[in-house]
Computed example of a mutant assay.
Amino acid sequence: MERERVELVYELTAGDLRESFAAQVRHTVAGRLARLVPWAIAGFSALGCVLRAAGGELEAGDVVVTVALVALALFLPRWQLASACRRAARRGERRAVVDGGGLSVTDSRGGNALPWTKLTRFMETERLFVLLGRGGNCFVALPKRAAADQGALRALLERHTSAGGAAPSAAHAE
């Protein structure tokens, strides 16, 4: 008989967050857009600078704005990761319960329950199960190290959601 309830106790690490962000970028439209849009804006600004320079109308403000947009596109992922790490550190230890009704997570700041209707798919990475919503937004990353029985957790997730990304070949080795 398959288990219908899995409990996890963990603290998210910078590595966990980095891996969940990378999985979202690789496997979801929302993740790819989050990386592409800042670069597209910076690219259009740079193109505008080139066109203004060709017409002899380039001003210092044009260059400053373009450099700022390129810097934003370059450093935004690092800032997002640093912000997520600070939030995770403030929240401390998390307790997650995955069962037939969905996922509930409690930590030092309270709790949150998400039914399966909000968690439409998951991705499995080498060290995580990343649960996603309809738009591809990452709702929660569950570290495999926190699951006493990864197979039971995987089976529960597969039963209630759809797998959204290819798992590494070593992912199923426990």
Rank of each mutant, 00 (worst) to 15 (best):
R78M: 13
T13G: 06
D16A: 13
V63C: 00
L8S: 12
A46M: 14
E11R: 15
Y10R: 10
A84T: 12
L47V: 15
V64T: 00
V6Y: 01
A23T: 04
E2V: 12
A89L: 04
L132M: 15
G165M: 08
D107E: 09
K144W: 04
R3G: 08
E93M: 12
C49T: 03
A46Q: 04
L74P: 00
L131W: 10
E19T: 12
A42D: 01
A68F: 01
F21I: 15
V65A: 00
A96F: 12
A54V: 15
G165H: 06
A46H: 06
A173G: 02
H27A: 12
N112F: 02
R95G: 09
A88F: 02
F129N: 05
W79P: 01
W116K: 04
V25K: 12
E11W: 08
A30P: 01
E59G: 11
R52N: 04
A53H: 10
G48E: 09
S108M: 08
S162T: 15
V70L: 12
L69G: 04
V98Y: 08
V140Y: 07
V50F: 13
A152V: 11
V37T: 13
A113K: 03
R95D: 04
L72W: 06
T117C: 03
A84S: 13
R86P: 01
L51R: 15
S104R: 12
D62Q: 01
A89W: 01
S162C: 03
A167H: 02
F21D: 06
L72P: 00
S83R: 15
S108A: 13
A113S: 11
R35E: 08
M1F: 03
T125L: 11
G100Y: 05
A40M: 10
G133L: 07
A113V: 10
A42Y: 04
L132G: 11
P168M: 08
G100W: 06
R78T: 15
L119Q: 06
L72S: 02
L36W: 05
L58K: 10
G92A: 11
P38H: 09
V6M: 05
R145Q: 08
W116M: 05
G92T: 09
L81Y: 06
G164C: 13
G164F: 10
G102H: 05
G111W: 10
A73S: 11
D107A: 11
L36Y: 07
L51C: 07
L58T: 09
A34N: 11
R134F: 08
G15L: 08
A146V: 06
L58W: 03
T117I: 11
A163K: 14
A88S: 05
L69H: 02
V37E: 00
N112A: 07
E158L: 15
G135F: 10
S45G: 03
R78G: 15
P38R: 09
T120H: 06
G102P: 04
L103R: 04
V29T: 12
R35A: 09
V98I: 14
C49K: 06
C85R: 14
V6T: 02
R94L: 11
V65Y: 00
